[in-house]
Design a protein around this nucleic acid. Structure first.
Lengths: 337, 337
DNA sequence: CTGAAAGCGCTTACAG
DNA sequence: CTGAAAGCGCTTACAG
């Protein structure tokens, strides 16, 4: 590896001058600068980032913690993060946590070790072992949360209003004449899943419809659990005429089972999803769902973190982005059976 | 930030001893070690990675370059990479290149700057501006390629035999009685897409079937291009009875248009895909496709790179992983019209 | 088993 | 506009 000293020697200047020529070209005499640039090119010099980072005490890396990078919902968000990070001179240190606390702490320690300047997490936990202590001491490293919600923590959060979105979708189904509207939850350990359930409940209440326990199925966001939910709902004495799933994958799994049992969607049962993953419009039937602005969630959370690293604290804690109810063909008016 | 000096001072030993206690505990007297560990805990000391990296000249980071992190095929592969990286003590520096050479070079320069010890790329290019020169000088940083194939470059490649897989699928369709088998390519700038096309052609040739130009559609791996392909094929005087798409998304887009036009799959037209993304089994009909071992591709490529970083060159350049023809319901025997 | 010292490759106040 | 010097926070041969 060629270092700054070799460039300096070649040109006959000090390393300080080489450093300046590279970092703040205008403070160096033009002639000097040109000689330096020529030497840099000739020697194929690339500044050592680690050295620079150590000296400037900045890594220009952002740790991104995701429960499952294979999930298309998350990977879209990360795409948005990368866009902003790139334009602002940061790189992504990616940690797939498998939703495991140990792994979160493992990666979180990289921030403590200054390998990253801050962290954006897509799960509901702060990834530091001694999070409470750090918070009370006011020494929590710059942290932003996307999609989830960290309670009692001074951490900016970027998400849609999950409860309101779920409420809206439920009302939409209700307005279509459905009275027995079932709901498939996500893993209830996550705040976002709970919020969606709340929204569903609130809509029922507003409409004066009694909540039926058997119409709520605890899913896990995987397509297969939608399939299991379908089996269960179909086994009921009185099956629902509409099902609202907490994500698109579960809706897809549910629809598949419905069709396998000879039911038509939406004629025999309406089905709605949540997220609007890229393939949702290609489902058969195309899925009615809640569009989450995935790229924007990624972009906004990264923007906030970068601002924090630049010393600008966000004006507010909660950043609520707009969602959209996308009506496609998987939902329809309730029909007499 | 508390540094190693403060720990040393607290215990009354040198920084060297603290460093040893942390890195090679057995070379330090047990009593000393315990005092040090106590101080570490008390002060909340975390070693500074950047300093360690600079000193040891190892970043323990791997640059992973992906054309589109939002693509579920790629994100599964990255998942596999992360698994191996984590167990071997490496972290992922993620670069989304949008298939853009400039961005590849931007991220590639991070390796030159020692911010990463090596790179795995999922595109067909070596991400260094002066790649040729580096190769001829023998100073190419450790590089591994996954899924694509870098010609004339001393870079290990991990992939399935795309040509053989495509050939097998084509034979499968032919054996079902189809004679007019269409093919939707991926972007032909990529070697892998060309290989699949080659396999398709070879199968036709072996079967003694003349290749028809109008039965080959140049797609781009997006669902929409499958839809466009469907329009085109349906507009032919003599439409194909089977279509083989170079990935699952295009197959899905194609199927949607087919259905919209009133055709049944597979009764009126058989459709096959490639990759076996997680949702492929939930398509309607469930998609016949080539299963690529995505996690294994990720794992294997990371294993090879880590081995290289440990000084172990891989025995061979090409690492060909097994694929699988998965027959589901989107393909069937050719029927008389 | 431990310490003093050198050094990884930069950047930056300070002085001129 | 430029240089000498200090220092970021570690690790490691060397010596004892």
């Amino acid at each position: 590896m060629v270092s700054i000293r070799q460039v300096a020697r070649q040109v006959g200047v000090s390393t300080a001058t080489v450093s300046r020529a590279l970092e703040r070209p205008h403070v160096v005499a033009e002639a000097t600068r040109q000689k330096i640039m020529a030497a840099v090119a000739k020697l194929g010099y690339t500044p050592n980032f680690q050295a620079r980072q150590l000296r400037t005490r900045k890594s220009h890396m952002i740790l991104v913690l995701v429960p499952d990078i294979g999930n298309p919902f998350f990977s879209e968000i990360i795409k948005g993060m990368e866009q902003v990070a790139h334009t602002r001179g940061y790189s992504l240190l990616l940690g797939d946590t498998h939703d495991d606390t140990e792994r979160e702490h493992h990666y979180g320690s990289r921030v403590m070790a200054r390998q990253a300047d801050g962290v954006i997490t897509l799960s509901a936990r702060i990834p530091f072992r001694n999070a409470r202590e750090l918070i009370s001491k006011g020494t929590l490293p710059p942290t932003v949360n996307a999609c989830e919600c960290l309670e009692n923590a001074p951490v900016p959060t970027v998400q849609i209003d999950n409860a309101a979105a779920a409420e809206k979708m439920t009302h939409f189904l209700l307005d279509l004449g459905h009275r027995r509207v079932a709901f498939v939850t996500g893993p209830l350990a996550s705040r976002l899943s709970v919020d969606r359930l709340k929204g569903y409940r609130k809509a029922l209440k507003t409409a004066g419809i009694e909540e039926k326990k058997e119409l709520i199925f605890n899913g896990d966001f995987l397509a297969e659990s939608g399939a299991v939910a379908a089996e269960k709902f179909l086994g009921l004495r009185s099956a629902p005429t509409a099902v609202f799933c907490s994500n698109d994958e579960m809706a897809l799994g549910l629809i598949r089972t419905l069709k396998a049992k000879g039911l038509r969607v939406p004629e025999d049962m309406s089905v709605a999803g949540f997220d609007d993953i890229p393939l949702a419009r290609y489902f058969d039937p195309p899925l009615t769902t809640i569009l989450q602005p995935k790229l924007d969630i990624g972009r906004e959370s990264m923007k906030i973190l970068c601002d924090m690293l630049d010393g600008r604290q966000p004006a507010q804690q909660d950043h609520t982005l707009p969602y959209q109810l996308v009506v496609r063909d998987s939902t329809g008016r309730r029909r007499a059976r």
